[in-house]
Nucleic acid binder design. Structure first.
Lengths: 170, 170
DNA sequence: TAACATTGGTTTCAATTGTAACCACTGCTG
DNA sequence: CAGCAGTGGTTACAATTGAAACCAATGTTA
């Protein structure tokens, strides 16, 4: 991977070592970030407008829709979201009556969360919406590409995960 | 562009409800977001610690390193970052003496930005660091996969871009 | 050339987010 | 069962971010 792409340099009879410039628009972390933001924002706007939901709140609902009777700590595990983010999402969902919270008599610190009736309604209306977006995205790929993407993401995720655990590179 | 892409319900036992649940961990927007955050944070931590740089500030430097004499507005174009984010990044970079700013005599609203000596030093130290991370990421993929990823991202980006322009789906 | 629209860039204010401290409860160890 | 470490969850506060208002310079139109 040899790239000699030097930018038009203003002054200087620069000896200009074939400087190893960074091409941001080809830099994977950058591209991922742009892509991810575009996608998430578009979708969030779609459901955020209709119902009153932030991204973290919707994530909590998405998990509770599939796995009832979770505690906040279990949500943390499932979503990889932060403790505090969960707490805030939960309290806003309670305000909306989208979820219910009940004490666990066996452990009075623990609170069991579930979608409420209303919450499940909303959930069931958002799911197809979300799937529509995903289908539209995926629709721009061939079946083969979809599968490739799936496995590629998996690999990248593992690698990035490793950074977080071991103290990064060197 | 209608696709009936029902989740493959690949798992066995769950007799349960045949509800059309959303499997967050398979949902592309979600995975992208997690991946992107992991990657960006790891890298940002690496250079943020050594030099005093935020992600947007580093992005500005990355662009200026390749394309001297840009104005803030041109940075906005190049990076797809927000106007305000650029303004703040620029002002923090000025504080660090990583960039210089000079008036354009032809248009006194416009300010021309460049890496300073110090800034270029830092830039040239960060570039290999960033590339090291990218190489490490890419190293988990085969050459073929890398190329696939490149083209896939391109396609997804276009699609997401389209959402932003036309008023989303339906 | 007086009015008005546009562009480049900054400031202000509110909302979102992250970090750390914090309470309440549990469970272990002596 | 007293003491104390660990857990579940919230609160407080600082830093980041985004939207909109804003100022100053330029361009355009009549």
């Amino acid at each position: 991977m040899t790239i000699d792409n030097r930018a038009p340099h203003s002054n200087a009879e620069s000896v200009d070592v074939a400087r190893d410039d960074l091409r941001l628009e080809k830099f994977l972390p950058y591209r991922l970030s742009v892509l991810s933001n575009r996608v998430s924002n578009a979708i969030a706007q779609a459901y955020g407008a209709r119902f009153d939901l932030t991204i973290p709140a919707w994530r909590v609902m998405a998990i509770l829709g599939r796995f009832p009777d979770l505690s906040a700590a279990e949500l943390v595990e499932q979503t990889a979201m932060d403790k505090v983010a969960i707490s805030r999402a939960v309290s806003s969902l309670l305000k909306n009556d989208y979820i219910t919270r009940s004490e666990d008599p066996a452990d009075r610190r623990r609170q069991v969360l579930n979608l409420s009736e209303l919450g499940r309604d909303v959930y069931e209306r958002i799911v197809p919406l979300a799937q529509q977006y995903e289908n539209d995205l995926m629709g721009s790929l061939s079946a083969e590409e979809r599968q490739q993407l799936d496995s590629i993401i998996e690999k990248l995720m593992d690698r990035a995960q490793a950074w977080a655990e071991r103290g990064l590179i060197d």
